[in-house]
Design a binder for these strands. Structure first.
Lengths: 337, 337
DNA sequence: GTGAAAGCGCTAACAG
DNA sequence: CTGTTAGCGCTTTCAC
């Protein structure tokens, strides 16, 4: 690999002159610049990224850290962040936190291989986040509340979402409602569940212990939990799945058991994934404002990078997407037919 | 930010000793190591990633370059590559080539910010690829055939796929078949179209010019092209969409026009995206072996990184996924009813 | 304008 | 085992 030294030598100028010419500094004569550029071309010279970063101690790159790069759920979010990054002249890379402490993500954070980060990865501990963040290294955290120097939150009001979903079910006449839970250690799940409970309590409704099943946020989990519920005999008139993926799995379980949705049991989800619109029946769900939260996160990061002061926490509201998986009922029981 | 120098000073040892201690070299006494580690802890010291990379001129990171990070289509591919990278002790970052010449992706490639790359981004020119690749910088290209030093191809046989899709339609009795095309400059589209033509010719069938519409690989495009086809009056008995996204859009257009699928017109797609299984009717399509091609690409990259010799090009075969969007017909015309 | 020289933070010979 | 030293490739004063 040719270095700038080689270029300077070939062009017959000093190292610094080559550097100036290459970065388009105006204090180099056009003629000299041409000479340097020509030499660079001949040698197929490329700047070495690291040397540059090391020298400037800025990378012009921000990282988006996700639990799993392959989740389909993030499309919208990624796009909006990407837009903001691009329009600020920054590069965006995405990295996965799979592998925990030893993951790419943690290395990028701790070793400051980027200028800042947006994190949506529950397997990165608060400690790591606190250790990494600082005045010169802002981090926007989107999956938990956390405070500290250089740390800012962009959160979606999950409790409100859980409440809205449950409230909607109640308003449609449902009184026996089950909650299929996500992972026990998930902050998001906890919020949604709290909202569920608030709505239930408000109406003097009780959660039946045997309906409280866990499906760990994946389709298969929703499927199994629902199967179990069906096996136990007594069905609720509506079930609130802590996320859409589980609702999709649940729907399959009901279908296989010959239970009509929403005829016999109504379903509501959370997230509004792309699939939600396409399954039969289309899933009523709670929509997270991914676009808005993505651009907000991006903008905040750049403000911090510019040294501007920002609030420590931002909360976005959710919305209900009414489709066809919830049936209006009379007396709290959907009935046999 | 504390440097290794500060750590050494605080621990009262030489710079190199600190470096050795920090990287766990065995030639440092346990006691000294402890002292150094303690000093590092006190100063909240973190290695500077760039300095390390610059020195070692290796990053232990590979990049996956995608046109658009937010495409849902890549999930499986990303996962399989990620697995391979992780098990080789490498980090994987994903970056987008949006922005063309000035994109993050191009910078990472040209400035060698990673040790190698897997590319699936048609907006990165062959020239850039050739300029970036070399003996010390392997690139696996998955979206076009290209040869050169350090360049390897992993391709899916799109022509065969186009042929299989069309052949299937013909075998089901269809004789008037339309092809809704992807972007004119897409290599993938060209292959699929060629396969289509081969099957048509083989059977002595003609492509009707007015059915040759383009939908540029997006849902909206498929929708519009189909609308146009419907407006023109005469419908084919089957249509082959160059990808599933367009087929989804096309389905919507047919639905809106009250044309029954597959009753009046059969549909076949290409890619087998997640949605394909969930739409009504479930879409018959050509499946690309994403897992296989992802791991193959990953393995090849690491072999090249290790200096092993590999073939210049690998081709993977596709498969047909039979679902319910194609109807078997008698005489080449689906008929009015 | 141009050139010499001083590092950015780190690793790895090398000599003690 | 420990300390000295020479760079990795680049940018950027500071004199000329």
């Amino acid at each position: 690999m040719a270095t700038i030294k080689d270029v300077a030598k070939l062009a017959g100028v000093a190292l610094s002159t080559a550097s100036y010419a290459l970065s388009g500094d105006s204090k180099v004569s056009t003629k000299t610049r041409e000479k340097v550029l020509e030499a660079a071309r001949q040698l197929n010279y490329r700047k070495n990224g690291f040397a540059m970063d090391l020298k400037k101690s800025r990378t012009n790159t921000i990282a988006l850290i996700l639990t799993d790069l392959s989740g389909p759920f993030y499309s919208e979010l990624i796009r909006s962040i990407q837009d903001v990054a691009l329009s600020n002249g920054y590069d965006l890379i995405a990295c996965s936190s799979m592998g925990g402490e030893d993951s790419t993500a943690v290395r990028f954070l701790l070793e400051k291989r980027v200028d800042g980060a947006i994190v949506l990865a529950h397997n990165i501990t608060d400690d790591i986040l606190r250790a990494a963040a600082g005045e010169r290294f802002p981090i926007v955290v989107m999956d938990r509340p956390i405070t500290g120097d250089g740390l800012v939150n962009v959160l979606v009001d999950g409790e409100e979402g859980g409440y809205r979903a449950t409230r909607y079910l109640i308003d449609q006449g449902h009184r026996s409602i089950a909650y299929i839970s996500g992972p026990a250690n998930s902050y998001d799940n906890a919020l949604r569940y709290e909202g569920f409970l608030r709505a239930m309590r408000e109406e003097g409704l009780e959660e039946k212990a045997k309906w409280k099943l866990s499906g760990s946020f994946i389709r298969e989990g929703g499927y199994k939990a629902t199967k179990m519920m069906i096996m136990q005999g007594e069905l609720p008139s509506a079930v609130f799945y802590a996320n859409d993926e589980m609702a999709v799995g649940g729907l399959k379980a009901f279908e296989e058991a010959g239970v009509s949705v929403p005829g016999e049991v109504s379903l509501i989800g959370f997230d509004d994934i792309q699939l939600a619109e396409y399954i039969q029946p289309p899933l009523t769900t709670i929509r997270q404002p991914m676009n808005e939260s993505g651009s907000l996160a991006g903008h905040l990061l750049f403000q911090m990078l510019n040294g501007d002061q920002v609030e420590a926490s931002y909360s976005l509201r959710i919305g209900l997407v009414e489709r066809q998986s919830v049936l209006k009922v009379r007396n709290g029981v959907t009935g046999e037919a």
